[in-house]
Design a protein around this nucleic acid. Sequence first.
DNA 1: ATATAAACAGAACGTTCGGTCTGTTTCAAG
DNA 2: CTTGAAACAGACCGAACGTTCTGTTTATAT
Lengths: 211, 211
Amino acid sequence: MVLDEAATSRADVPAAKTKKQRQTEVAKHRICDAVVDCLDEFGYAETSIKRVQARAGVSRGALTHHFPSKEEMMVETVERLLQPARPKSGVLKASSAEKDLLKLWARVVDTKEGRALVEILVAARTDKGLHARISPGLSRYNDGFNAEVVRLYESVDLDDGDVATLWTICRVFLRGLHMQERFDAKPGHTAKIMKRFAEIIGPHMRPREVE
Amino acid sequence: MVLDEAATSRADVPAAKTKKQRQTEVAKHRICDAVVDCLDEFGYAETSIKRVQARAGVSRGALTHHFPSKEEMMVETVERLLQPARPKSGVLKASSAEKDLLKLWARVVDTKEGRALVEILVAARTDKGLHARISPGLSRYNDGFNAEVVRLYESVDLDDGDVATLWTICRVFLRGLHMQERFDAKPGHTAKIMKRFAEIIGPHMRPREVE
DNA sequence: ATATAAACAGAACGTTCGGTCTGTTTCAAG
DNA sequence: CTTGAAACAGACCGAACGTTCTGTTTATAT
């Protein structure tokens, strides 16, 4: 949904001229989409190459050709997931921190792509190789996110550094909520907790005056 | 550290009279300790039976004898982990919610046992069989925890239900912080975030007057 | 038009996993 | 003392995994 067809054409790369290049791009796109599906549906441990292959509808050879290893496949998937999830993409509107936080949960975190990303993150905690590969991109994303929120908000209690801290707290909470969601069958429960949290942390930030 | 040698003797079960029973208890204890070690050190995915066996210093046959399946092994480990982690054990003192929260993090969550428990929890999200087995114990623990905090605290803003909600938020946050800790190399960072969070949510609860 | 390399297909490989199975030793009840 | 079951030891098994390898097709550069 975030990575729809339109996204392919508006790629930052010179847009794939030759047919072979287009083939490759399409194949990789299909495969990474399948990875996201599998991660969301089965979790990292159960996302085997065979399963991805079947879901993507490509042969074993094709998959191996584009991604020589599973790690490679995951790395590229993470990069694709990180790209549209940027706060720049317009999720944060700075009407109020409380509203933005709820929006961030609903539109970014609590989505198929958000859940898939967390699956990889969780796996990377204990997989050193994977961790090393995705760390740079993750840091870049976090830095960009922090810069964005500092630009949009100011702390009620302290300095600008506190805004970054507060949003880090929010990110940590959202990740924790993610874990809990897979346990709690009750659907309303998560929303209730999310709402109360936003209510509590929201007042500690205020939107900056537009210049 | 929570499950030290002393803990073995003060068991709630009639304390294992016959030698065979004692042997079994010792073996199981050694194995579950090894499971905890491996989970903390390598994560769930890398915690194979072979690894546990090696760490515990028992033969494959012995391990299989006491735990016919890996799932069985994990279930018993969870039960042992949940036992001493009870809030009843005296972690919460109700001097202030802020202090109790920091204590909860340092003495329960951010320990070898706490990390091991989260590993199993995370794995159980996508492992239906394991999930079904540990759910009851987990619910019991959560209920006990909620009852305890409601007994100790009252909400500043709302009713008693809110106290449970607030502490659920805390638990969610702690779980999220756990994830983040394995990424952030900087040691002080986690403590800083933890402190700020406690500072924010603490004032929403107040200790009940002692009766 | 032809050569070359990429895209693709699928068989084959070695490893590791969890589980089972066959023995041997040790304890305790009768 | 004998007997049976539990504690223990380790070999064995089939399945699944990720990777590697050998072909075949297809597109593009010369």
